[in-house]
Structures are given as C-alpha cells and as structure tokens.
Amino acid sequence: MTTILFVPGAWIARAFYEPFLQALMVAGYNVRYAAYPSLNPSDPSTTDCHTDTEGIAVVLRSFVEEDGQDVMLFLHSYAGMPGAAAATGLSKSQRAQEGKVGGVIGLLFLGAFIVPEGSSCAGLQGGNLPPWILLDRPSANLNVADDPINNFAADVDLAQAQSLVANLKPHATLPFTSPQPHPAWADEAFRGHLAFIVTTEDRAVPREAQFGMIAATQKPWIVKELASSHCAPFLNRIEETVEMTRQIVVKFL
C-alpha cells in the first residue's frame, strides 16, 4: 500500500485538511501528516525553511528508512519548499540501487511553490511578499493572511469556508525569506516522478505563477488543472482532488 505523506500550506492547521485526508484513506491509501515548526511558533526567530525541512525529513525518514514504505509526498502551497528539500536522497530508485527497500515514489505539488536552491519565496516574487501577507502580526517576525476567504476560497460557500478561517494560525516570516535548501525535484532520480495540480482560479498563487515555476525547472512534469481557488481542493472539490491524486500515484508507480 502506498503511503501519502501530506504536508500543509502556511498558516493552516491540520484540522482543516482532515476531511481530505479521510477521503484519501477511504480511497485506500495509508495517509500520514508532517507538520513543521514555523506554524504558530513560540519563537519565530528560530524557524526558517531549513528547520521546516528537517522537521518534515524526520517524519519522512521514519517511514522510508525505518519502515521501508513507498511514500508519495503531497505538498500544498508553502510546503513545496521544505517538502521537496526533505525528499532529497530518498527516492525509491536511488534506494533500490543501494539494495534498500522503500523510498519516495514521487512529489505531488498542489498550488505549491517550486523554488530553486538558494532562492526564497520572497525572492521568487521580486524580493517582496504579496501585500495580503500582513507582516509582524500578531507580533514581530510573525505574519497572518489578510482576507483569507477572498484570497484562499472565494469560490467556496461562505459557511463551508468558515472551517478554513477557524483553522488559521500565525506563521513565522523567516521561512518565506530564507534560502531554499536543495530540492529533490532538481535531481535526476525524480525525473518522471514530479506532478503538479494547478489551481487555475487561485488568487494566492496565480495560475500564471504556477505554470511559470513549473517551466523554470526545465523538468518534465505531470500537470493537471483544477478550476478552483487555493483551498477549494480540500473543501468542496475533495472528490476531484482525490481522483487526480489517484491518477498521479498510478503514474508514479
């Protein structure tokens, strides 16, 4: 059975994703979740993209190296940065060459950031974060997302979108401005094992930006398009998102 390790976007607590994670389990996957330290940290000055990468890698390595599982990483939004870095050196093909079982069968990005090594989320956007990221709130080195329903879920019924608002927390700012560690998507071992679900109505990470990041890698990607906002795949488009995920897992295998 394939394990799907889900890594969340910035600001969003696990409870928001639970209906989607449950749907993946019903579809027959072993579903796991990897949090990272920059979500609502007690000291935001100590968490950057590297520490988030290490937090995810500890979880990922436990499934791959200790349990020998086949794992697909599902990366939403900011998770594309530390999640991709956490998979470095853990591809199934690399491990098979070393006589080891298990490994990462592929990376699935959804409305996610693909950032070259040494650059940053802010650097990818000309050095500045978008204005809807409200800096130094509720305190220094933290930030919150302004008008989350409009930016993340404008196409979702207001009552249903409240589950998103209820599960938002402050996020450290340093992960958005610190360098991207080496991402696994840049490695030949993951050639043919990269996929992206483009959220075409996304106001947070616009469609053009998603396709631009994909093209900039100069790698072949499995690309699917979902006519949705940034968070609708986990609210009112769960069935479609699960089906796209299933199709991608099949191609990776």
Rank of each mutant, 00 (worst) to 15 (best):
87 A>M: 02
245 T>R: 04
68 G>C: 12
96 A>E: 13
119 S>F: 07
144 V>S: 02
95 R>V: 08
210 Q>R: 09
60 L>G: 01
83 G>Q: 10
74 F>H: 10
2 T>Y: 00
211 F>M: 10
121 C>D: 03
84 A>E: 09
51 T>F: 01
104 V>H: 00
23 A>P: 04
24 L>V: 02
252 F>G: 10
250 V>K: 14
216 A>D: 15
102 G>R: 04
65 E>R: 14
11 W>I: 04
78 Y>T: 00
233 P>C: 03
223 V>F: 04
212 G>L: 02
233 P>G: 06
119 S>L: 07
184 A>P: 07
221 W>M: 04
78 Y>C: 02
146 D>R: 08
16 F>L: 08
92 K>V: 14
202 D>L: 10
199 T>H: 03
108 L>G: 00
230 H>K: 03
14 R>T: 09
178 S>A: 07
162 Q>I: 01
74 F>P: 10
196 F>W: 05
23 A>L: 03
101 V>C: 12
125 Q>V: 02
225 E>F: 07
146 D>G: 07
162 Q>D: 11
34 A>R: 10
177 T>D: 05
180 Q>Y: 01
159 A>T: 15
11 W>F: 14
200 T>G: 07
59 V>S: 13
182 H>L: 10
46 T>N: 11
171 H>S: 09
189 A>K: 03
65 E>M: 13
20 F>S: 02
86 A>R: 11
117 E>C: 07
48 D>A: 01
110 L>D: 10
50 H>T: 12
107 L>Q: 01
73 L>G: 06
141 N>K: 15
29 Y>H: 11
